[in-house]
Amino acid sequence: METLTEPAVIDQMTPIPFRVRGVREELPHTFTLELEPPDGSFAFLPGQFTMVYAFGIGEVPISISSSTSKPGTILQTIRRTGAVTHALGRLKSGDYVGIRGPFGTPWPLDTARGGDLLIIGGGIGLAPLRPAIYHAIENRADYERVVVLYGTRTPDDILFEKELAAWGERTDVTTMITVDAADRGWHGSVGVVTRLIGRVGFDPANTTVLVCGPEIMMTVTARRLIEGSSVEPENIYVTMERNMKCAIGVCGHCQFGEKFICTDGAVFPYPEVGHLFDIKGV
């Protein structure tokens, strides 16, 4: 009854092979894959993610962490947590991964134009923000103040440390880093990242805030901005994460209230998801 035919119309679950051009160790458990799209160019928007496939092992959703102005080089910064990410972490130059995407909603870099841009990252959350930072620097005249605030556990956990230092050298960007704890010899800030908010100048009435990090970090940061700095909730954007199996809204796993994080997010204006953070297990 059933016969084989030539490959039918490709569907949205078919992975496309991307060549690994290089692998860079960022931190003890975090690495970045530098990928080459098969057509030489892969268009995406800052904040979007792909499903990265280790052949025969599995897929994980990973935010793209490269610049949109370099579509021939796709960077995916990955933390080793399970079987798939460990398999991806063993790849070498010349190997291949499968890519599906890009998926998800982007950071609102267009609507943010003409105002201050406040970018707050925690831990590995800096990776999904990096394309937005690149965009802001490459289109600097579009924004008023550009501020990057980054918090992580210890100085050894600072992601993209050299780039943060380079951004810190710039006069057109304000960059501040804080850690939860450090040994003597660290001359930077120690304290939770929300404490940096009170130390930077920005116009709460004309600012767009991009926040990325674990859920507790984002909710605490959003509340600090709303209650402590009078930033309007709709000007705060967070990025959500949930178990994903398809990234196209048909597996049901990533639902958060009425939202499919893969298609309605992962970037959300805070008012769209803020009320859901208080409902345990929603």
Binding site: H29, T81, G122, G123, I124, G125, G151, T152, R153, D157, D180, A181, G191, V192, T194, R195, G213, P214, I216, M217, V220
Partner: peptide
């Protein structure tokens, strides 16, 4: 309150 946030896995670095 700020110090308490330094006690939880605020940045999700725990493996």
């Amino acid at each position: 309150a700020a110090t308490r946030l330094q006690l939880v896995d605020f940045y999700g670095n725990a493996n």
